[in-house]
């Protein structure tokens, strides 16, 4: 057999393996999709929607923290801005259809994100975290003082309305499939971003910023764009959340929310696609399950303990650790 023959046969096997892997992934994704489609018949849809909203929020945050290496401690501001904008518009302008309200909320969060990014992007590491935290506090106090947010009470009774003026979202199943569709679209978008050349530059910035600079990348621009996308998606999560729960409140703007999204991302596995989704599912479940039982008053300390244990024992998060394990023992 000649050299070329051997090479081509090796290539063929590799191709075959890849195809098999692709098929396996396709089957796996198909099963997951089926589960998500059938889930509302087994589990209370509003609870599922809560998970999806927080999963989107965490995935948006992870784009910045996990893939670009920027820890924003102010992401609650975007969640709340999306929520309040959508809530206010839908409550006060009955002509608006639901998706218009959600788009408006997302746009507001995007603009705010651009503002945050321009002010903070030149700061590194913890300084960046502190600046975003302070900016988010400004936003928080703005919401406390403003009359349109309903102050401490928040906005109640946001109408869910009709999607495109056609589909009645008061129905939980309709609402669920809408939220699921938006979530999946965003998830695919993030996946696309991360695997694009742009995403690779982000990862390069995370790993070694001076090197990325010396290679000629305009690092600040890449970071600003990542920040804005992340803020927009977080705002979208907030907008949907306010429609789902028909409520926008100060809780979403409080800095504890910024901490919570960090916890979700960290527990699930930062810098992985599935990690934040898993983390959000886990944290929302823990909060809900504990909230029902005798440990009702111990939610905060338990979340704190999870934080401590995660940072000490498995910094790569659940998905990250599983990946490591697989790589070591199987791959």
């Amino acid at each position: 057999m000649s050299q070329i023959d051997i090479q081509s046969s090796i290539q063929k096997t590799i191709l075959k393996q890849q195809k098999a892997e692709d098929r396996r992934k396709l089957v796996l994704n198909g099963i997951l999709l089926m589960l998500l489609l059938l889930a509302p018949f087994v589990i209370y849809p509003v609870f599922l929607m809560k998970i999806l909203c927080f999963a989107l929020f965490a995935a948006a945050f992870n784009l910045l923290f996990g893939f670009t290496g920027l820890l924003s401690f102010g992401h609650a501001a975007f969640l709340a801005t999306g929520g309040y904008t959508t809530g206010y518009l839908l409550s006060n302008y009955s002509g608006l259809t639901t998706e218009m309200g959600i788009i408006a909320g997302t746009l507001m969060a995007t603009v705010l994100g651009l503002g945050f990014a321009l002010l903070s992007i030149r700061r590194q590491g913890i300084y960046f975290a502190m600046v975003t935290l302070a900016l988010a506090q400004l936003v928080f106090f703005f919401f406390v003082q403003s009359s349109f947010t309903g102050g401490e009470d928040g906005l109640h009774g946001v109408p869910r309305g009709e999607l495109f003026g056609l589909i009645n979202l008061e129905d939980n199943l309709n609402m669920y499939y809408f939220v699921l569709a938006v979530f999946l679209a965003c998830y695919l978008l993030i996946q696309r971003i991360v695997s694009s050349p742009y995403g690779h530059v982000l990862k390069a910035i995370k790993q070694n910023e001076p090197r990325a600079v010396s290679l000629g990348y305009k690092v600040d621009r890449y970071k600003v764009l990542a920040f804005v996308i992340s803020a927009a998606l977080a705002g979208l999560a907030g907008s949907m959340k306010s429609v789902v729960f028909q409520l926008a409140s100060l809780n979403d703007a409080h800095w504890h929310m910024s901490g919570e999204v960090i916890l979700m991302t960290l527990v699930g596995g930062m810098g992985t696609l599935l990690g934040p989704v898993l983390g959000a599912t886990l944290v929302v479940n823990i909060e809900y399950q504990l909230g029902q039982g005798p440990l009702r008053d111990w939610v905060d300390p338990i979340l704190g303990a999870i934080f401590v244990i995660t940072v000490l024992a498995f910094r790569s998060g659940i998905v990250g650790e599983v990946q490591k394990f697989v790589r070591k023992n199987i791959g």
Partner: peptide
């Protein structure tokens, strides 16, 4: 930052 945040949550809670 994250570790001490967790510690603070525990103490406060």
């Amino acid at each position: 930052l994250l570790l001490t945040f967790g510690v603070a949550l525990i103490m406060q809670g």
